[in-house]
C-alpha cells in the first residue's frame, strides 16, 4: 500500500506538471531553431575597388557613380597646386546595376579607363551561389563574370596594349569567386580569387593573370564603417615591375557612410581603375610614398517595380 501511495503521488505529480508549465506560455512555443540567412555582410556591392559578395535586391536598380582623382603626394603628381590630385581626375564610372532576382545582378557601366585602355564599356553578371546562415552555412559565395570592351581608336604603336587589329582583341574577361563571412555585426572578411583574361596585351605582358584578393569591413557605428581591399596578382611582368618600382599591389582603404538612401564611400587607393583588369594590373604608385589617390563611390538604389 505504501508503494501504491508513492506511485499515486508520482503519477499526480507527473500529470499535473503541464499545469505548471502552462503558466509560462513563452516556454510552450519552443526555442527558435531556424537557420536564417545572414544579411548585410557588406553594405553595398562594392568595397573600395573590388566587388563584395552582395548583390542588388530583386527589381532594384543601383545607380552608381565613382570617381578617382590624381595622386596625393608630389612623387605621384600631387601637391598643393592641384589640391593633392583633386584637379587631375584620373577616372570616373557611371553604372546601372540591376537586381534580376535577389541573387542575380546584371550590370552595365562606362568608365574613362585608367591604364592604357580608355573608353571602357563594362558588363557583368553576378550570382550569389551560397548564402551564409546563422547555423549551418558558414560563408556566402558569389560568382562574378565580367566582360569589358573599349571604343578607343586603335594605336599604331604595335607594342601598345591598344594596337588592336579587330573587335575581338578589344575584349577582356573577368572571373571571380568571392567567399565572405560575417563574423559578427561589425566584422566581415572576404577573399576573392580572380582570373583575368585579356585578348590583347602590350609586348611583354601576359594575357592570362590569376590574382588573389582580400577585403573586409569593420563597422564602428550604426551607419559608418572602414572598408579595405587588397589584391596580389601572380604575374611575372608585375613582379618584375614591382621590383623596378613601377608597380605596387593595389590597396584601398575607405570610409563608408550610409545615409538611409545613399551609401557613400570615401576612398584612398593607389590605382585609378574600376574594372578588375584595370585596378589589379595598373597601380603604378606606392602607398608608402604618398602614392595614393582620393576617390569616392556613390550608390543609390531605386525600386523599379
Amino acid at each position: 500500500m505504501k508503494l501504491n501511495r508513492f506511485l499515486a503521488g508520482a503519477l499526480l505529480l507527473l500529470s499535473s506538471s503541464p499545469l505548471f508549465a502552462q503558466d509560462d506560455l513563452s516556454k510552450l512555443l519552443g526555442e527558435d531553431k531556424s537557420d536564417d540567412i545572414v544579411s548585410a555582410t557588406f553594405k553595398t556591392t562594392r568595397l573600395n575597388m573590388a566587388h563584395s559578395i552582395e548583390t542588388v535586391g530583386a527589381h532594384q536598380l543601383d545607380f552608381r557613380v565613382s570617381h578617382v582623382f590624381g595622386g596625393v603626394g608630389k612623387a605621384a603628381g600631387g601637391g598643393t597646386h592641384n589640391l593633392w590630385g583633386f584637379d587631375q581626375i584620373a577616372n570616373m564610372r557611371i553604372a546601372f546595376e540591376y537586381g534580376v532576382t535577389d541573387r542575380l545582378t546584371a550590370s552595365i557601366g562606362r568608365s574613362k579607363g585608367f591604364g592604357s585602355i580608355h573608353e571602357v564599356y563594362d558588363g557583368h553578371l553576378k550570382y550569389k551561389l551560397l548564402r551564409q546562415t546563422t547555423r549551418k552555412t558558414p560563408v556566402t559565395i558569389t560568382l562574378l563574370g565580367g566582360i569589358n570592351t573599349t571604343g578607343m581608336t586603335a594605336s599604331s604603336d604595335s607594342t601598345s596594349a591598344a594596337s588592336f587589329h579587330n573587335g575581338t582583341e578589344r575584349l577582356t574577361y573577368i572571373s571571380q569567386v568571392m567567399i565572405a563571412r560575417k563574423f559578427n555585426t561589425n566584422l566581415s572578411i572576404q577573399i576573392m580569387p580572380t582570373y583575368i583574361h585579356r585578348n590583347y596585351v602590350a609586348a611583354n605582358d601576359e594575357n592570362d593573370v590569376f590574382a588573389i584578393g582580400v577585403g573586409g569591413r569593420l563597422k564602428f557605428s550604426k551607419r559608418s564603417a572602414i572598408i579595405i581591399d587588397y589584391f596580389m596578382p601572380f604575374s611575372k611582368s608585375r613582379t618584375a615591375a614591382h621590383k623596378a618600382g613601377t608597380y605596387y599591389y593595389p590597396l584601398g582603404i575607405g570610409y563608408e557612410i550610409e545615409t538611409g538612401g545613399h551609401v557613400f564611400h570615401l576612398t584612398l587607393v593607389n590605382t585609378g581603375g574600376f574594372t578588375e583588369d584595370d585596378f589589379i594590373l595598373n597601380s603604378p604608385t606606392s602607398w608608402t610614398k604618398w602614392g595614393f589617390r582620393f576617390g569616392f563611390n556613390i550608390s543609390r538604389p531605386f525600386r523599379i517595380y
Partner: peptide, 26 residues
Amino acid sequence: GAAMNLANKSLFFKVKNTTFKFPKAL
C-alpha cells in the same frame, strides 16, 4: 509565435524581427 491560456486569460506573442518583409530589400 502566439499562445493563449484561457484558464488565467494570459496571452503571449513572439516575433522574430528578421522575418518582417518590406517592399524594398534596403
